[in-house]
Design a protein around this nucleic acid. Structure first.
Lengths: 214, 214
DNA sequence: TAGATTGTTAATCGATTAACAATC
DNA sequence: TAGATTGTTAATCGATTAACAATC
């Protein structure tokens, strides 16, 4: 593993490689060349080889890449076997849907608990996940050494809650609140899913600028 | 409006500008310089001026930008006033949550209807939105000239459903299925929200590579 | 071995940053 | 007017693509 900075562009292609590899492994494909991957994904073979060589050589000249070995290498880079732990903060419609639907395990995370202020929810168990009172959140994170908080509270409480989490500090926040969050003076990583940014981007391309999306 | 290609990087910053502008307009700020925006957003003043100048000059030398004018300019570029129409395809947990929670209007879209195969849901109205049988989806889109389908069906039906939508063709698909979709031979725009890509990226940065996220 | 395909260096392309003249 | 800040051109930086020697 090299020490120089690997660009975020490369990192964000890794999950796509993983997705492709899972698909072709399920089909029984044992080996693949960078050229084949390229045409399946709409990238160049050069770029794919460059990407993997940021982390070391996973291929073999004249042969290509062993799909299962490559899959394991990418999984390991992404920390999929690190047993990260997560909690959900805010069990409204969206938190609820993610709790029930989202496969944390396939991303290397174990969902341990959920937290809400709503007394009607507190004490319940949903899909095997206990829902606790938000008052106990900070202590729970400290005591159980939780890595990540999925933040799905209402917009109005997003910033104070994020600040509280950063001050623990928790290692990472996965932000679904559609509020721009920063972690000044804290090491907490913040990764946001901004639904509206994504939809507005589509609005732009629908707005007569469709030449070149995808 | 220029005719050369504007990069996707620029487009994806526009919603962030909009978010900032909404925030400072709410605070009563009437004008702002590129330098002030830059420090609030962690960008450079140069980049901000370059971004806006892709679409024409919205500022005034010696003064800066009028926040409300700039907000309107960005909104117009993103097509926020175009009255786009949308339907939800698949009313499971996630589709349900988006139907109830997500503010389509603030992105320039009007949610018209939802579709599902589940007979228990068909005929209901949720948050003012009727739920119809999926059998009627294609006709509904054609007859009502729907611009966008939010795709939140189970993984297994994602590809065939996407193909069906592309063959109409619908103008855009907003893909929440976590399946890689393409629209070969069709003009349909596809924009995907891959939750797991986002979470795996966090996994990477948690995995001892934290130097430089954000 | 000959053919294929990687790993890696070099060339190109595009995006960001810096600089500054124009101008409000 | 003088000061401030844009719009825009030029310089830099980084990412992608091309080329090819290494090697399985």
């Amino acid at each position: 593993m090299k020490n120089y900075k690997i660009s975020d562009n490369v990192i964000r292609r890794l999950p796509r490689y993983l997705r492709l590899l899972d698909e072709i492994i399920a089909d029984g494909t044992k080996r693949i060349s960078s050229g084949e991957m390229a045409s399946l994904m709409g990238l160049t073979a050069s770029q794919i080889r460059q990407d993997f060589n940021c982390f070391g050589g996973f291929g073999q000249q004249g042969y290509g890449y062993n799909t299962e070995m490559l899959r394991e290498a990418v999984a390991s880079i992404m920390g999929l076997n690190n047993g990260y732990t997560a909690v959900i903060v805010g069990v409204g419609n969206l938190g609820h849907a993610l709790l029930r639907n989202f496969d944390f395990g396939s991303c290397g995370f174990e969902l341990k608990a959920a937290f809400d202020v709503n007394a009607n929810l507190v004490g319940d168990t949903m899909a095997g996940i206990p829902i606790y009172d938000s008052n106990g959140l900070v202590d729970y994170i400290k005591e159980n050494d939780i890595d990540l908080a999925l933040l799905s509270v209402p917009k109005t409480t997003a910033k104070p809650m994020a600040e509280k989490l950063c001050s623990i500090p928790i290692k990472a926040i996965w932000n679904f609140t559609n509020v721009e969050l920063t972690a000044p003076g804290s090491d907490t990583l913040i990764e946001s899913i901004h639904f509206s940014d994504s939809l507005m981007t589509l609005g732009y391309y629908l707005n007569g600028h469709r030449e070149d999306h995808n």
